[in-house]
Design a protein around this nucleic acid. Structure first.
Lengths: 340, 340
DNA sequence: TTGTACGCGTTATCAG
DNA sequence: CTGATAACGCGTACAA
C-alpha cells in the first residue's frame, strides 16, 4: 500500500487534517508547520490519492470527450487529431486529464455518457459535432451537467456554451469565390443532414447562389460521410447527371480527397474541368494533388477554446453561456480556377 | 446528490451490502432478491459511483496512454490517430476507459506519470515509442506497475511485455527491395537515434547493404524528427553531398512527404531520379504524389494488442511477459523504380 | 493555529 | 442467503 496522508502526519507529528491543509496550501497553517509537513511528504515520497480526493471533494479534474458516432470513422479524419491536440493542450494547462468515450452506435455512446456522468468519472464533457436529435445534450441539460459543444447546437443555441466557426458565412464566401471565377453550375457535397455543420454550410452555399440569381438544383446537393469513400460516392452521383457541375463546394478535405481520386481515375482534370473548394484545411489539403483550395477553420483553436471554457464553467457554475466564434480563412491553392 | 446504493437498499428493503452483491452478480444472492433489487435500481435510476467503487476496490478500470515527447508533435503524425483507434477499440471492448497524459518536456511527462500512478488514477499504462534513456519505464518496473510498451524496450526487453513490429527485418527487406531495383547509393533517414525504432530500422538497413557488399557511408544516414519538416531537412542535407544517393529508406511517411515536397521544389523527380521507400503506410502514403511505396506496419493492431494485453495483465498479475510481433508488409507504389 | 470526527459511496470481512 | 461493520484515503465542519 502506498504512502497516505496519515503516514505523513505521523512522520511530521501533526494530524492528518493538517497535512490535508498543507496540500491545499491553507493560509491558516503556519509556515513552520507547512515546511515541516512538506519535508515529510518529500521524505516519504508522498503523492495524494486522486480517487480518495475525488470522492471527498466530489470532483475528479478529468474532462471527457464524447465522439459523435462510430469512433472508428471519427478517428480516420485528421480533423479529429487536431481537435484532440487543442483539447489536450488546454486541459493540460489547467491540470485536467482528458478521457475519451467511444462507442459504435449512438445508443451505446449515450449509455456510456450516462455512466460517466452518473458514475462521477468526469467533471465535464466536450461534445463533438452536434446533430439534430441529440439525446445526450438533452440529458446533460436536464442534469445541469457542465458541457460545451464544438459546433453549433441544433436546439437551445442561446443556452449552451459552444465553440464554432461561422460556417454559414464561410460557406457563402467559398461559394462566392467560385462564382467570381465564373462558375454557375456549382454543386454542394456535405455530410449527413442531421449534422448542424452540414446544415450551416449548405445554407451558406444556397444563399450565395440565390444572391447571384442562380436557381437551386436539388440534384446538385449530395450528402455522404466525412470520409474519402463519401467523396467518391458523391462525385459519382454528380457525374451521372446529364449536365455536370463545373465547380464543387465540399464540406470536408477528406471527402474532397475522395472526389479528387475518383476524378483522376476518370481522367477529369481539376481545376480545368472541375474546380473544388473544400473545408478544414488539414494537412491533406496541402498534400493532395492538385493542392486543395480549402477554408481553414482553425481546428486546433476550436478544441483549445472548448476545453478552456469547459474548465471555466466547471469551476464557476455561474459562468455565463458563451458562443465563441473562431475565425476562418479561405486558402486558395490549385484546385480552383476560372471557368473555361 | 445522486442516487446511492443506500437509497436502493432502503427502497428494496435490503442492506446496502446486498445491493452491492447484486451489482457484482454474486451467486450467493437468491434470484428473488436480485430481481427485487434490480427493479429498485431501475425504478430509482441508480448508477454506481465509479469513484467510490475505485476507492474501495483499488482499481479504476481506466488505462492511460503516455506519449513520448511533445504531445504537440506526436499528434501531428497520423501514426498516432491509428494507434489511438486501436487502443480505444480494445479498451472499449473490455469496458475500460482511456485517459491521456501529455506534457511538453520529458521531465514534465515523467512527473505526470508519477502523479497518475501514485494517485491511483489508472490501473495500467501504455507507453508509446520507447527510447534509450527511459526513466518512466524504470520507475514503473520498480513499482511493479502494469504497463506495456508499443515498440521495443531499450533495456530489459525480456522482462517487459511489448507490442512491436520486426523493424529490423522490415527495414532489411525494404532496403533489399531497393537493391533489387539496382540501387547502390541508398541513404537512410530516420528519427532520433535514442528511439529504439530508429535503431532497429537503421540496423536492418545496414545489414542489407552489408550483405550486398556495399560499403556503409556515414553521410548517408540522417536523423530528424518524424515530421514533414524533418524530411525536408534530411533531404537537404543529403543533396549537399557531392554524390547524392539514388534511393532512400525513410523511417516515416510524414517525413517522406517532406522529402517529396522538397524534391518537387527542386525539380528532382521521384522515382526517376530518386526512389523512396518509407514506413507506416498511413493514408498519406497513398495520397502523396507520387504515391509512396511504404511498409505497412498495421498500426491499428499495434494499438489494439497493446491495450488488450495491458488489460490482461491488470487482471492477472501472473500473466507472463509477452513479446508480440505484428506482421508488416511492403506496399509497392509509385515512389520506387528501377535505377536508370 | 491545529486536532477530532464524520462523511463521500463502495467493497469486503465476518457473523448469523 | 443476508446484514452489520469496517475499511479505502481524503476534505472539512466543529472543537479546542
Amino acid at each position: 500500500m502506498a504512502i497516505t496522508i496519515k503516514d505523513v502526519a505521523k512522520f511530521a507529528n501533526v494530524a492528518p487534517s493538517t497535512v490535508s491543509r498543507v496540500i491545499a496550501d491553507n493560509p491558516r497553517i503556519s509556515e513552520k508547520t507547512k515546511k515541516r509537513v512538506r519535508e515529510a511528504m518529500e521524505e516519504l515520497g508522498y503523492h495524494p490519492n486522486f480517487i480518495a480526493r475525488s470522492l471527498a471533494s466530489q470532483s475528479t479534474e478529468v474532462i471527457g470527450l464524447v465522439m459523435p458516432g462510430s469512433a472508428d470513422k471519427t478517428f480516420q479524419n485528421p480533423f479529429f487529431s487536431n481537435i484532440l491536440r487543442g483539447l489536450s493542450e488546454s486541459a493540460h494547462e489547467k491540470n485536467y486529464a482528458l478521457q475519451m468515450t467511444t462507442g459504435k452506435t449512438v445508443d451505446e455512446i449515450y449509455e456510456n455518457v450516462v455512466h460517466m456522468v452518473q458514475g462521477g468519472r468526469v467533471d465535464g464533457l466536450v461534445l463533438l459535432n452536434s446533430r439534430a436529435d441529440d439525446k445526450i445534450m438533452e440529458y446533460l441539460r436536464k442534469r445541469d451537467f457542465p458541457f460545451v459543444v464544438i459546433g453549433k447546437p441544433y436546439m437551445h443555441e442561446e443556452e449552451i456554451t459552444h465553440v464554432d466557426n461561422d460556417n454559414f458565412r464561410a460557406s457563402k464566401e467559398a461559394t462566392e469565390y467560385l462564382l467570381e471565377l465564373g462558375h454557375e453550375s456549382i454543386a454542394f457535397i456535405g455530410g449527413d443532414l442531421s449534422l448542424v455543420v452540414t446544415i450551416d454550410r449548405l445554407l451558406g452555399y444556397e444563399k450565395a447562389l440565390r444572391i447571384a440569381g442562380i436557381e437551386l438544383n436539388n440534384q446538385y446537393v449530395i450528402h455522404e460521410e466525412f470520409l474519402r469513400e463519401g467523396g467518391r460516392e458523391a462525385i459519382s452521383e454528380l457525374l451521372k447527371l446529364s449536365d455536370h457541375p463545373t465547380a464543387l463546394v465540399v464540406a470536408d478535405d477528406l471527402m474532397a480527397l475522395g472526389v479528387l481520386n475518383t476524378l483522376a481515375e476518370l481522367n477529369i482534370s481539376v481545376p480545368e474541368d472541375i474546380s473544388i473548394v473544400s473545408f478544414n484545411n488539414v494537412l491533406f489539403a496541402e498534400v493532395a494533388n492538385p493542392q486543395l483550395t480549402s477554408v481553414d477553420i482553425n481546428i486546433f483553436t476550436l478544441g483549445y477554446e472548448a476545453a478552456k471554457n469547459l474548465i471555466l464553467k466547471i469551476n464557476n457554475p455561474n459562468e455565463p453561456v458563451k458562443r465563441i466564434i473562431i475565425p476562418h480563412k479561405l486558402i486558395i491553392r490549385e484546385s480552383s480556377a476560372k471557368k473555361h
